Amino acid sequence: MKYFIPAAENPEQAERVYEAIAKFNSAPLSGARICALTWPHNGIMMSCEIGSQAPSYYGTGSESVVAIFDCGNLYKICTENRGVLRGEAILAGKGDETPPTYFVEGGA
């Protein structure tokens, strides 16, 4: 899947939004962008994908995942009210998770 940010009108806007979200969350910028992630939380397997709803467990309603950042020892999963416009991102610990799925450069 080719990299995108939900609601961005073009690749340049998507990049500006991604960089702003990274800065707001003190997340490192990386050339490799995460598309989807699966991880265990309190014995439940959670999963999310850019453009799809975040797990209901986190109380985000119908908000879509906008960005996922690899922050070394954890992932930060950002929705409108959890890491994009306000609030703290959803935190997913690393360890037993399956490897993230990355966007493919030039993919469809």
Rank of each mutant, 00 (worst) to 15 (best):
M1Y: 04
M1D: 07
M1S: 07
K2G: 07
Y3D: 03
Y3G: 00
Y3A: 00
Y3F: 09
F4Q: 04
I5K: 00
I5F: 04
P6N: 08
P6I: 04
A7N: 14
A8M: 08
A8N: 04
A8V: 06
E9G: 10
P11W: 00
E12C: 01
E12R: 12
E12Q: 10
E12N: 07
Q13H: 08
A14G: 09
R16D: 11
R16T: 11
V17F: 08
Y18P: 01
Y18H: 14
E19N: 14
E19Q: 15
E19L: 14
E19V: 12
I21M: 13
I21A: 09
A22W: 07
A22T: 10
K23E: 13
F24Q: 06
N25F: 11
N25T: 08
S26F: 13
A27N: 03
P28M: 09
L29F: 03
G31A: 07
R33V: 08
I34H: 02
C35K: 13
A36G: 11
A36T: 08
A36D: 11
T38N: 11
W39T: 04
N42R: 07
G43Q: 07
I44N: 13
M45W: 14
M46L: 15
M46R: 15
M46Y: 13
M46E: 14
S47Y: 14
C48V: 11
E49Y: 02
I50Y: 10
I50S: 10
Q53N: 12
Q53D: 05
P55Q: 04
P55E: 01
P55I: 03
P55M: 08
S56D: 08
Y57F: 12
Y58R: 01
G59L: 00
G59N: 11
G59C: 02
T60Q: 06
G61A: 01
G61I: 01
G61Q: 04
G61S: 03
S62R: 15
S62W: 08
E63V: 03
S64H: 09
S64I: 10
V65S: 02
V65K: 10
V66Q: 11
A67E: 02
I68T: 04
C71Y: 00
G72F: 05
N73R: 02
Y75T: 00
Y75R: 03
Y75F: 14
K76Y: 07
I77P: 03
I77S: 05
T79G: 01
E80F: 09
E80M: 09
N81T: 14
R82L: 12
G83D: 06
V84F: 09
L85M: 15
L85A: 15
R86N: 12
R86T: 12
E88F: 13
E88L: 15
A89Q: 05
A89I: 05
I90Q: 04
L91S: 14
A92Q: 11
G93L: 09
G93I: 00
K94F: 13
K94Y: 10
K94E: 09
G95C: 07
G95N: 12
D96A: 00
E97S: 08
T98K: 06
P99D: 02
P100E: 01
P100Y: 00
P100V: 10
P100S: 05
T101Y: 00
Y102L: 12
Y102G: 02
F103D: 00
F103S: 05
F103W: 10
F103P: 03
V104F: 07
G106N: 14
G106C: 11
A108E: 13
A108K: 13
A108L: 14
